[in-house]
Design a protein around this nucleic acid. Structure first.
Length: 262
DNA sequence: ATGCCGGGTGGAACCCGA
């Protein structure tokens, strides 16, 4: 069972890249963020041609998430049940079955708020979102559900996860309050799969457009997979697929894949 | 080189992202 996460920065601007990557990569499930389109404008046909069903939670102009799957899924939530009044499209929850685990695995696709600049309502919204997310996830965790969370977390977990900690000292993604919220799940027993399964200190998943981030190798590690212990024990491979970031008119994020023994 | 790019929107001296 292979699952991929990718912030495509507009699914319609990036549809050719998405198709090209899926054709080669052939994950069972794709968690896609930053669609930047309403449900009606999603490129369903192109995805269907590849043999995938699209589950879409879009929004005009910004945000938006989707899950693409070879097999039929049931979407359990399109908003955080603990934060129903949220008007932004940032979450999809489904569940999948594998032979090695009896209980269905709760699978989340998330696009966590960016939160910049700090000391504004945008940052407050980010922390609130993380707080409500943790509340919901920990409730599922305490009921012994296996869980996989994939997506663009907009969290730089530690100073090792950014090319220049100094430049990001006042960034919402590296703020102590953001890291504190992220650590709540880690401390409860979730594994940061990329961190744990990949060696080295430059496992970037994002390179900004500004200032030639990609060309200079100035990246961030902000796209993550968090897994509960029974899932972590089944992880076969975690991979950052850098190639798509080098394609012409690329997304600023590149796909990350998680393969588990099923 | 976070006023620097590159999406969307609407027709911007705009918005957003990270």
């Amino acid at each position: 069972m292979k699952i991929a996460t990718w912030n495509v920065n507009s699914v319609n601007a990036r549809i050719e890249h998405l198709v090209k990557f899926i054709k080669k990569d052939q994950s069972d499930i794709y968690l896609i963020q930053e669609l930047k389109c309403i449900n009606e404008s999603f490129p369903y046909q192109e995805i269907e041609k590849l043999g995938y069903i699209s589950y879409v939670e879009g929004q005009k102009a910004w945000n938006g998430v989707a899950i693409l799957s070879k097999k039929k899924l049931k979407i359990l939530n399109r908003k955080l049940p603990t934060f129903n009044e949220d008007v932004q499209s940032r979450l999809l929850e489904t569940e999948i079955k594998i032979n090695k685990i009896k209980k269905p695995i709760k699978l989340f696709c998330i696009y966590l708020p960016n939160g910049n600049p700090i000391e504004t309502e945008k940052f407050d919204y980010k922390i609130k979102w993380m707080n409500k997310f943790n509340e919901y996830i920990l409730n599922l965790y305490e009921k012994n559900n296996p869980i996989i969370i994939g997506g663009d977390f907009n969290v730089i977990p530690t100073d090792e996860d950014v090319y220049s900690p100094e430049n990001f000292k006042n960034d919402a993604c590296a703020h102590p309050k953001t890291r504190e919220q992220y650590r709540i799940l880690i401390n409860k027993g979730f594994t940061d799969a990329v961190k744990f399964f990949l060696d080295g200190k430059t496992n970037w998943t994002f390179w900004g457009y500004r200032g030639g981030g990609w060309q200079k190798g100035n990246g961030l590690r902000i796209d993550h997979f968090l897994t509960t212990p029974e899932i972590t024990d089944l992880i076969k491979e975690v991979k950052i697929n850098r190639e798509p970031r080098g394609w012409e008119k690329a997304s600023d994020h590149t796909p990350v894949t998680l393969e588990i023994r099923d």
